[in-house]
Nucleic acid binder design. Sequence first.
DNA 1: GGACATTTGTTCGTATGTATC
DNA 2: AGATACATACGAACAAATGTC
Lengths: 218, 218
Amino acid sequence: MQPEEIGQTIATAILERRLIPGRRLNELELSRLLGVSRSMIRFALVGLHHDGLVTFEANRGAFVAKPTLAEANFLFEAIAAIERSAVDIILAAPRPPSLDGLRGVHRKQVKAHAKDNMRLSEQLAIDFHHELLALTGNPLLIDAQRKLLLRYRIVTGVFKTELDYCELEDHHGELIALLESGSAARLRRLVDTHWRLVIRGHISVNPGIEDLAEALRL
Amino acid sequence: MQPEEIGQTIATAILERRLIPGRRLNELELSRLLGVSRSMIRFALVGLHHDGLVTFEANRGAFVAKPTLAEANFLFEAIAAIERSAVDIILAAPRPPSLDGLRGVHRKQVKAHAKDNMRLSEQLAIDFHHELLALTGNPLLIDAQRKLLLRYRIVTGVFKTELDYCELEDHHGELIALLESGSAARLRRLVDTHWRLVIRGHISVNPGIEDLAEALRL
DNA sequence: GGACATTTGTTCGTATGTATC
DNA sequence: AGATACATACGAACAAATGTC
């Protein structure tokens, strides 16, 4: 197992919800299972921590990140913010970019949805957003969005209830059309509408009160 | 020396340009100087790598990141993108935020500039941008901008020539005024203008040709 | 082209402190 | 309160890669 793969293996397990939020990540256990030393495991876990997939508690170790609903809302807001500015950049480019990548992913997604392959459809929906940022050609923005979308996948596992996939797909189609016609203001609104719809598909779980004194009304 | 401080110590040395881009960071040397084990140094360096301050070359070790001019431009574009959307979020808040923090930093900066304390003035200019993002209240966006501004400070060390500090300060003042009056479109334009002015203050060094075959015209 | 010194990448054993039962 | 389990940190060690003479 290569050092690079270690993080990937754990990340995949988290994103595919085999490791659920709050789950403890025992370093010794991981090192035995993956056949590498504890140092390498720590190395990987720190990397995942930087991507927001893992949290550390002092002297307690690593856990799969357990987003609160408040964090989830910040997440949606942040992704929408980056994508809103991204469409500005795409439209401001000296020559219009090829939208073939977006069209291809979108077409595949519609097809997957038609076949009721929701798992694939969801993955392609995320790929669509990656394709969108790729059009900016700005590696820093691409990376910022990549990290946020990673966390998005954790959040959906915790809070998602029911998304209106038809409408979300329509948005993607509209977005392609608007990128062609080049109306910046409408694009920004569309991106906002899109993510607001995603937010609405996430239930408002009662998170309880973390602070004990507060919970007991002291 | 606490583990947390290690990264800070190295980061500060980089940001204050005591360690210049391209400078090699020898693990053994660092561990001896800072009085911690090589493991801790490695963790610190990896952390700095995630923040874009340090690059790794396989089997050659860590170096202070040496941004190219192309990367610098991406950096400016990315910061502008985040701040453009940030002002949207600030204006869309249910109740207008207190601009006292921005005003305080701005006042200090004008004062420092008047006293010709450029070092302090530059730091306060960066603080101003941190204050701006703080108004969004979104920790994810705040963190994204924080990382980009870290790299900005390296870039200025390499490429900065002459900035029109008077005009840049005026922009900050204008920004406060526009946040009060609440005109989103003009704010977005201002943020863009601001960073475009910053870009113009950075010289266009001939970056050479990275690809050897191309450089030799093969 | 080869031998050598240096440094990284990685692992292991161990000591220490801290949380949990 | 005591025992146990675990994370944290250190130092020593080794192979592999690199740069140098």
